[in-house]
């Protein structure tokens, strides 16, 4: 296999060029996540016939349409349920799910919770832009306190949903959160998530200048991307400051969003345990038959 070094060759291999350019707005972060996924897949050298993409409804869920591989565009919030079906039918496939914050945390919340709890072998790439972008800017459950949306014109008073923390609590095997403006850590994280057996969640903070930035007066594209740099902090730095920092430093980083790998464990996945269960019962049955003879 020829090793790919430039973006041009990468695009020829992975992109369905007839669908390009994307429908995404100017300054949207979704295309960057797509590119990071391409690089991760290329570095792992996976057979693209063995990779299946699934998605629900929303901006992020347009992404499988741009990839030259099998994809499933399903109903709102139910991408994880469909992906469980794919995995049950043939456990050899790598299943990657592109989903948004409204799709995964809002409408498909229960599917997400139970897939993580059962530890089904899949990689969920959740692109979090704090808002329902495609449907007109309704308030998403992940939106920070005080943010403006069409359904919250005087500011959000509901506490935001920290989906990475939830996944950690449910015992997902791999949980990481990254922004889109620093390339190398996310690519490495996607690789690790794909290699991991069991449930892995990768949350990306993607800017949405049209629906979120414009209403919240975050400025133009440049300022909006800079907002994500100013309001995020690495989890290692955060913990260090919270442990040893002065009161002033603690007050500075208290409200920032933490980035990094939150959980990296190895528990047996659902289908692994299921195979073992089937083997055990078969053995028991044959023993019982032998006993009758």
């Amino acid at each position: 296999m020829v090793e790919i070094k430039t973006a041009d060759e990468l695009n020829k291999k992975f992109l369905r060029e007839g669908m390009w350019p994307t429908i995404f707005c100017n300054g949207c972060g979704h295309g960057v996540v797509l590119e990071y996924t391409f690089w991760a897949l290329e570095e792992l050298g996976l057979d693209m016939d063995k990779v299946i993409f699934a998605s629900g409804i929303g901006c992020s869920s347009r992404l499988p349409g741009y990839i030259n591989a099998d994809g499933l565009h399903t109903t709102h919030g139910r991408a994880i349920a469909f992906a469980t079906g794919i995995k049950a039918a043939n456990p050899d496939f790598h299943v990657i799910i592109f989903t948004g914050d409204g799709d995964c945390a809002g409408i498909g919340g229960n599917h997400f919770i139970h897939a993580a709890r059962r530890n089904i072998d899949m990689t969920v790439i959740m692109i979090n832009n704090f808002i329902y972008g495609m449907t007109g800017g309704q308030l998403a459950p992940t939106a920070p306190l005080g943010s403006i949306a069409t359904t919250a014109p005087y500011g959000n008073i509901e506490h935001p949903f920290d989906i990475s923390n939830l996944a950690c609590a449910l015992g997902a095997n791999y949980v990481a959160r990254w922004g889109v403006s620093h390339p190398y850590q996310p690519i490495k994280s996607i690789k690790e998530g794909l290699e991991k057996r069991g449930f892995s969640l990768l949350e990306f903070l993607a800017p949405c200048p049209t629906a979120y930035g414009r209403r919240n007066k975050l400025g133009d594209i440049k300022k909006h991307w800079a907002w994500y740099d100013d309001n995020t902090i690495l989890i290692e730095d955060y913990e260090k400051i919270m442990k040893y920092g002065t009161e002033e430093e603690k007050a500075q980083v208290k409200d920032k969003i933490q980035l990094g790998v939150f959980q990296d464990i190895q528990k047996p996945g659902f289908f692994e345990s299921y195979e073992k269960l089937v083997d055990r019962l078969r053995e028991k049955e044959t023993k019982a038959k032998e006993g009758k003879k």
């Binding site: 973006a7 990468l10 695009n11 390009w20 350019p21 979704h30 295309g31 960057v32 590119e35 390339p183």
Partner: peptide, 15 residues
């Protein structure tokens, strides 16, 4: 290669 990796429309190639 930062511009290549960060371009949301995959339009840039660095040689």
């Amino acid at each position: 290669r930062l511009c290549e990796l960060i371009c949301p429309d995959l339009a840039i190639t660095v040689i």
